[in-house]
Design a protein around this nucleic acid. Structure first.
Lengths: 256, 256
DNA sequence: TTTATTGTTTTGTATTACTAAACACGTGGT
DNA sequence: ACCACGTGTTTAGTAATACAAAACAATAAA
């Protein structure tokens, strides 16, 4: 799980994997972590206390947890994204008007990151959470993004992360991807029948900057039985495209 | 600005100050950071590339920025807080019913951290953002929290962070604090006329767990001219107390 | 072209973060 | 009541590493 690509400052690598497992385990003790990471207890202890002194970790009794120190940096990074406030508002509108779950995702380091998540009245519950990173070929919004990203960028991303499978429907070859992306461009939006999760149907469109480069992608997700019919899907797609277009105009002129 | 309390793993300390200044500067280059932190360029470069490989930093051209890697940990830490979902919903209700800005704050490491922030229709804009850390004696919610926290905990916090001043009205002595906290307990809620920010009026109540220990505090803030009148303030306070009470009952039985 | 000013890379060394082992503390079992 | 084993914590010694210094590359300005 932990990438052993050696980085100049190895302590940062250790810290990163420490935090990841700390989060995975939903809180853990020193020994538990030491066993998992295959390092000495004292090493883990030193890291944890250092992280704690800087607000990145809390301990309750003998268990350590990821702390709220990350929330500050995280929210800063989120609000720094171009058009964040405007897109957030639009996402909310879509969620209310469709009643479904509407999300906005951006790309960073070749992966998709969920930035905004707004639930409508009858929205489904998914496991995705703000900040989660996913492979772009695993989600509808990700494919909508790729379809409108420069070819060179797509190639870079595929080269870096490959096209790992998730379900049997996931696209795992560059040829199939190219065909899919072309289909999305022809259609104007991306559609998925349970690629990410069984029984989930999703529609995604890119949010484009001037010059057409995508900032991210917005998607609506709901239970297949509710969205799968031709009529409703097309309705939602048109709504998304309309909102995306509005955003494109406002972002262009406001630059934030 | 950088605390030089030596921690076992010093790289983490360097990383922390690096990230802080990176955020303060809203993006910066290698040389700029090296000068500010009084270390060599190569050191900064090594840290930045290491952080980047782990998704904590991005670079655009020659400028580095805090990345979205923090968002995942941050959101995790936020949702881990007891009663988060329920409190979020109630915060929204209060924002809608009052039309003002309603926030929820918890304490970590002796400081207040803004967890939730919901704006009503006529809500003021403040500089506070989710994840921001503030001294508890600087904000209304913080004082509401302190008023219902165990005396020992209050003493610990004051001992650790002191009572730094912010405006001329900020409480900076333990005696004054004790009097204020008692007044809050007598009244049932905390009130502030521009302690944190000029022209802002805020009302805060604790959100208590079973056994009365506070999980955090919820506050409503608005322009002084709108809230300052006796009638309106009392109205808001009663609404908050009612919502807090509802929360206390639901959280008790749901444990999340 | 020249001259600053970037970011990047390299090399050697002093620092430091690691392992290992001992210590303190509490708990559960017998 | 004791003992054994589980914690987290602390301490020493050493191998690893993160650092400073300086050279290098690349870009932009003069």
């Amino acid at each position: 799980m932990a990438d052993h690509t050696d980085t100049p400052v190895k302590s940062i690598g250790r810290m990163a994997t420490l935090l990841e497992t700390l989060q995975q385990f939903d809180g853990a003790g020193v020994t538990e972590l030491a066993n998992e990471l295959e390092v000495t207890k004292s090493t883990v202890y030193n890291h944890l206390t250092s992280l704690e002194q800087h607000g990145y970790v809390v301990h309750e009794g003998d268990d350590y947890y990821v702390g709220l120190g990350f929330l500050d940096h995280g929210e800063y990074a989120r609000q720094r994204q171009i058009g964040y406030q405007l897109i957030r508002q639009k996402t909310r509108e879509v969620a209310e008007e469709t009643g479904e779950l509407c999300q906005y995702m951006v790309e960073e380091h070749g992966l998709g990151v969920f930035l905004i998540r707004e639930s409508g009245r009858q929205a489904v519950e998914t496991r995705t959470r703000i900040g989660n990173r996913v492979h772009l070929n695993h989600v509808t919004a990700g494919k909508a993004f790729l379809a409108y990203a420069p070819d060179a960028r797509v190639a870079e991303i595929v080269d870096k992360h490959g096209l790992p499978g998730k379900t049997e429907n996931t696209i795992t070859s560059t040829e199939a991807l190219e065909i899919e992306l072309q289909a999305i461009r022809d259609r104007g939006y991306a559609v998925d029948k349970d690629e990410h999760l069984k029984g989930l149907y999703a529609i995604g469109v890119p949010i484009q900057y001037e010059s057409g480069q995508p900032l991210g992608a917005m998607s609506v997700a709901g239970p297949a039985n509710r969205i799968n019919d031709e009529q409703r899907a097309e309705e939602i797609a048109q709504l998304l495209l309309e909102k995306a277009n509005e955003l494109q105009l406002t972002i262009k002129h406001s630059q934030s």
